[in-house]
Design a protein around this nucleic acid. Structure first.
Length: 486
RNA sequence: CGGGGUAUGGCGCAGUUGGUAGCGCGCUGUGUUUGGGACGCAGAGGCCCUCGGUUCGAGUCCGAGUACCCCGACCA
């Protein structure tokens, strides 16, 4: 790269994002990746995804789910069984027509999601109420042929987990959908430090084939919204078309109630856009692949010996505390280069050890959430471990605090004022307003402001109250967030 | 799927009236450096997107094709 640093966010947010993901080495340069719309996730980016993955996987297992794996290929006829479902996905399907040099009798679809093939399996596996609930999850790749793609946010192939469960009653399925939404929100807030809002999707924005769809909505650094995770109560739609039935206690056949829920590599995009600054990434310590980077500095070989002695000692004591740590021993770049490099990669804490520190028994500690020299201080080497452990907590909390304050300062409650409503949306703000949920109204806001409802928050600001829909002025019993979205 | 643009070392680009390719960064070696993106010296590295045409001669001119990028309509 001939260029140093990235385009400032304020100048061109989109350019900033595209440059950061490449310069922080999360992905291969998309313009060079040979498969259009797909991404090569580089090791550092994949480690970030693994942090998301391992956190969620643990929570899924804690709540009784088991991992399984279903085929990448799905018979075309499976998708066609659920009318809404196939209609929703038809335009973005990749289809395999040939195999082993011969045309297939029935084409396979490369899964855009697995409700159908898992539904078919469930229909064979479930016999009795004793087989329920069936709580499955799979970690997989899926393909949706997207016209415009962006690394992590929208790619033709992406990685995700998709949970699929079957229950005896509507209420159990509903509870499951809400439980998984809670798990997503908890992860987003506590680990990714993104203050997401839990809500229900409007009928227009609902998953194709679902009874109800829920979402965690996150605000990005430019004010736009990003759906960071979803869960669906699929009702009996898939159970009916795939014949997922069980015999209840009274020996009667009943259709199951199913759910599905997913978080994808888009979450990585959310982390980048929720926290990044003009220096690059800022990663929350909880999920940062590298939490602490040690940069040794020396001029002469005799200094090097003393410096490395201190560096090795600090490395060992910090590692003993369970910190994910890296020592940057590169000799072909200067310390200044390294500082910028690690800031671009978003490492929460950097420790610099130079000859002066060896002499004075000190260490320079720089915290990434406060950029540049302002976030740097010199402390006694004896205090480094405690200080760094405290910084992990402080930085985690501070990133969440900053993101929350930013979000709240960009949300405006608006009632009965379509002009003001539009103004908020045009300025990339979020409008919280009464909304009847109707398709006509939503189409109108989309046309007028390129913005639709993000969700009806589960946590309603004025529960039990009613208002006038911002569009049609008809009765609305819930408020919804509207915003431009990724 | 509509509109615009680009294609030349790893990356970013230049290349005049057509004469057989250059700059910066990076890379390799080496020496001096190293506390906020170091410098000197010596090197390596090119099917100029593809096919066809014009010409003694094409990176350059003409034609066709392909790929990609940007802007709009569709989307986890």
């Amino acid at each position: 790269m001939s260029k140093q640093g990235v385009t400032p966010r304020s100048e061109d947010y989109s350019a900033w994002y595209n440059e950061v993901v490449v310069q922080a080495e999360l992905v291969d340069n998309p313009e060079k990746t040979p498969v259009r719309g797909c991404m090569i996730i580089k090791p550092y980016g994949y480690e970030l995804w693994e942090a998301v993955k391992s956190n969620l996987d643990r929570r899924f297992k804690e709540t009784g789910h088991q991992n399984a794996y279903f085929p990448l290929f799905i018979p075309m006829s499976f998708l066609e069984k659920e009318a809404d479902h196939v209609e929703g996905f038809a335009p973005e399907l990749a289809v395999v027509t040939h195999g082993g040099g011969k045309e297939l009798a029935e084409p396979y679809v490369i899964r855009p999601t697995s409700e159908t093939i898992i539904g078919e399996a469930m229909s064979r596996w479930i016999q009795s109420f004793r087989d329920l609930p069936l709580l499955l999850n799979q970690w997989a790749n899926v393909v949706r042929w997207e016209k415009r793609t962006r690394p992590f946010l929208r790619t033709s192939e992406f990685l995700w987990q998709e949970g699929h469960t079957a229950h005896a009653t509507h209420d159990e399925a509903q509870a499951e959908a809400l439980q998984m939404l809670d798990i997503y929100a908890e992860f987003a807030i506590e680990k990714a430090a993104i203050p997401v809002i839990k809500g229900q999707k409007s009928d227009q924005e609902r998953f194709a084939g679902a009874l109800r769809s829920y979402t965690i909505e996150a605000m990005m650094g430019d004010g736009k919204a990003l759906q960071a995770g979803t869960s669906h109560n699929l009702g009996q739609n898939f159970a009916r078309v795939f014949d997922i039935q069980y015999v209840d206690e009274n020996n009667e056949q009943q259709y199951c109630w199913t759910t599905s829920w997913g978080v994808s590599t888009r979450m990585v995009g959310a982390i980048i856009m929720a926290h990044g600054d003009d220096q690059g990434l800022r990663l929350p310590p909880e999920i940062a692949p590298i939490q602490v980077v040690l940069v040794p500095i020396w001029r002469k070989d005799e200094e090097k010996v003393g410096v490395l002695e201190v560096v090795d000692r600090l490395r060992d004591t910090l590692k003993a505390k369970g910190l994910r740590l890296h020592v940057d021993l590169r000799e072909n770049v200067t310390p200044g280069y390294k500082f910028n490099d690690w800031e671009m990669r978003g490492v929460p804490v950097r420790i610099e050890i130079g000859p002066k520190d060896v002499e004075k028994g000190s260490a320079a500690i720089a915290r990434r959430d406060i950029p540049g020299k302002a976030g740097k201080e010199f402390i006694n080497q004896d205090k480094v471990v405690d200080h760094v452990l405290q910084l992990m907590v402080d930085i985690q909390a501070n990133l969440l605090k900053q993101a929350t304050e930013f979000r709240d300062s960009n949300i405006t409650i608006v009632e009965n004022d379509y002009e003001k409503f539009g103004e908020i949306l045009r300025n990339n703000g979020w409008a919280l307003t009464w909304f009847c949920g109707g398709a006509e109204c939503e189409n109108r806001t989309k046309e007028d402001f390129q913005a639709v409802s993000r969700c009806f928050p589960l946590d309603q600001p004025q529960p039990a109250m009613k208002g006038k829909c911002i569009c049609c002025e008809g009765e609305a019993d819930r408020m919804a967030y509207f915003a431009k979205a990724y």
